[in-house]
């Protein structure tokens, strides 16, 4: 009789403390942080938890990461609700258009670049350099490097390589 009373008391104490065992905010916060850390693809988000409400702040790379972070936080035990204040990194501006030299400058540059290769004929039209004639294979890269540095729009290589 005495033993069963003790057992009952132990059982009740355990039951009460089990029901009352809500995770602490700091524990929830750590659990969310651990889950975020497990997904480095979507880095940048941090959670602060107060009374079971998780507030997400920081910058992530896209909308997918923003919603994934919210779902992840919601799934953590003890989280009552999630305030998603994450921002998404704006896409980088498109690269500037390449600068193309005017034909007059290209003509001058082409004259200088082909001076040592008299069998090469080069014409310039609308930013495009067109190469005809012949060149030795060992000289091709040297010539192409010179011409590429002139900022043409395009190089049409129709050279016969010997």
């Amino acid at each position: 009789m005495k033993l069963s009373k003790i057992l009952l008391a132990v059982f009740l104490t355990a039951a009460v403390s089990f029901i009352g065992c809500k995770p602490k905010d700091s524990t929830i916060q750590k659990n969310i942080a651990d889950k975020f850390a497990a997904n480095p693809e979507c880095s940048g988000a941090t959670a602060t938890v107060s009374d079971g409400v998780a507030t997400l702040t920081g910058q992530v790379k896209d909308d997918m990461c923003k919603s994934t972070a919210e779902t992840t936080a919601k799934d953590v035990k003890g989280v009552k609700s999630v305030v998603n204040d994450l921002t998404v990194t704006p896409p980088p501006p498109p690269p500037a258009a390449p600068t193309v030299s005017p034909d007059a400058a290209l003509n001058q540059g082409v004259t200088d670049a082909t001076k040592d290769f008299p069998t090469v004929k080069a014409t310039v039209n609308n930013g495009e350099i067109t190469l005809t004639g012949t060149i030795k294979r060992k000289d091709l890269t040297t010539l192409m490097q010179s011409l590429n540095s002139l900022h043409p729009a395009k190089i049409n290589n129709q050279l016969t390589i010997k």
């Binding site: 390449p98 091709l140 890269t141 192409m144 490097q145 590429n148 540095s149 900022h151 043409p152 729009a153 395009k154 190089i155 049409n156 290589n157 390589i161």
Partner: peptide, 26 residues
Amino acid sequence: AKDQLWEIYGKIDPDYRAGDLILDIE
């Protein structure tokens, strides 16, 4: 470093025929 890039360019586009790249490395 510049020579290495030109070597790669020459492998992707042998003899620089395609006319689709301007490689301006100083």
